[in-house]
């Protein structure tokens, strides 16, 4: 992957807190990430890791009781210049144009992103017309209602929908789960976004359908050259789709780097634990190595390293007091763990 000019999304010190009845929940605790054009960044984490919240923050789709940190920066490097999404006013026109325009989104539950009272085609055409300025810049073509419909049909065909001319006039509930997921991808990609955010898009699908959707997403990404932010709890899916990955735990990124290398040789004890706990196909009836303990409540974030309560290599007096900073391991890898930091020596 060449150079910083491919840089598309830069997240710096993103922090998100929720005010709830039971107190303050720190869902995302100062994370920094970059996504490059034509590249997929996978974010993997379990419940409470904040992976979904972080990506919702990128689209500014957080609920009303959420607050972004003062110093959070979400920089989108567009051809027309750079823009800080974190600084845009909540209901601004610009934000609306970004969502579904420069940034496409797909979710776990496709029914949630379709309105049940309009046909698939109707919703796609609306989206295309809403973002016609953006599309004109990308494709050099200005769409009207008729050409938008043709474009929508082309997209449905492209995502592997059989009989797109029939499908476009169907309602979302008339499609099967896999088809809906395809339709949602078609909607997201119909505006040729430069960044696609996919939040557990295959989690609700059967394995054979998941395989089809993952293949499709890989193909389309290469074709359109967009950057992809892929959120999942499934290491296997990450291994299949993402060149680079970041592992999140309780709102922090504990390890990041090229996917293959992290899976071959995980550095952070949490990543190691996750991989060791994963059941594998090649060894029958082997005892697994679980990560001890439970994921702590987000209301009671442990002091110091968030993982120290479950870490087999926890160093008393250090890990429970001092938050480890990112340590560069070379070749694009870094880890936030005292075992690797200067403090350890």
């Amino acid at each position: 992957m060449a150079a910083g000019d491919a840089l598309l999304l830069e997240i710096r010190d993103l922090g998100v807190s929720f005010t709830t009845d039971d107190g303050m929940v720190r869902a995302v605790d100062g994370i920094s990430l970059v996504a490059r054009r034509g590249c997929t960044l996978g974010i993997v984490g379990e419940s409470g890791s904040g992976k979904s919240v972080a990506t919702k923050a990128v689209m500014r789709l957080l609920p009303a009781n959420a607050r972004l940190d003062e110093g959070s920066r979400i920089l989108l490097h567009r051809e027309e210049g750079e823009i800080d999404i974190a600084a845009l006013p909540a209901r601004s026109r610009e934000l609306r144009r970004l969502r579904g325009g420069d940034i496409g989104m797909i979710f776990q539950e496709p029914m949630a992103s379709f309105s049940p009272v309009y046909t698939v085609g109707n919703q796609m055409i609306e989206a295309i017309l809403e973002h016609r300025d953006h599309l004109e810049r990308r494709l050099g073509e200005r769409f009207d209602r008729r050409s938008a419909r043709e474009h929508a049909i082309r997209m449905l065909e492209r995502v592997g929908m059989s009989n797109p001319r029939l499908r476009i006039d169907q309602y979302p509930h008339e499609l099967s789960g896999g088809m809906r997921q395809r339709a949602m991808i078609a909607v997201a990609l119909s505006t040729h976004p430069s960044l696609l955010i996919a939040d557990e898009p295959t989690t609700a699908l059967d394995v054979t359908i998941q395989a089809q959707i993952l293949d499709l997403m890989l193909e389309l990404q290469q074709e359109l050259g967009m950057a992809m932010l892929f959120i999942t709890h499934d290491m296997g899916v990450i291994a299949r789709i993402a060149e680079e990955m970041a592992v999140m735990y309780l709102g922090r990124i504990v390890e990041r780097g090229p996917t293959r290398e992290i899976i071959r040789e995980p550095a952070h004890p949490y990543t190691r634990g996750l991989l060791a706990a994963l059941p594998r196909l090649d060894t029958a009836r082997r005892r697994l190595t679980p990560v001890p303990g439970d994921i702590p409540s987000p209301l009671q974030r442990p002091a110091g390293c968030p993982f120290h309560t479950r870490c087999p290599r926890h160093m008393p007096g250090l890990c429970d007091r001092i938050l480890p900073q990112d340590t560069d391991l070379g070749s694009g890898r870094s880890v936030a763990c005292h075992l690797f930091g200067e403090a350890a020596s």
Partner: peptide
């Protein structure tokens, strides 16, 4: 269950 917990229950 989360992967890290799932292994425990399987064991």
């Amino acid at each position: 269950l989360d992967v890290s917990i799932q292994a425990d229950i399987l064991n």
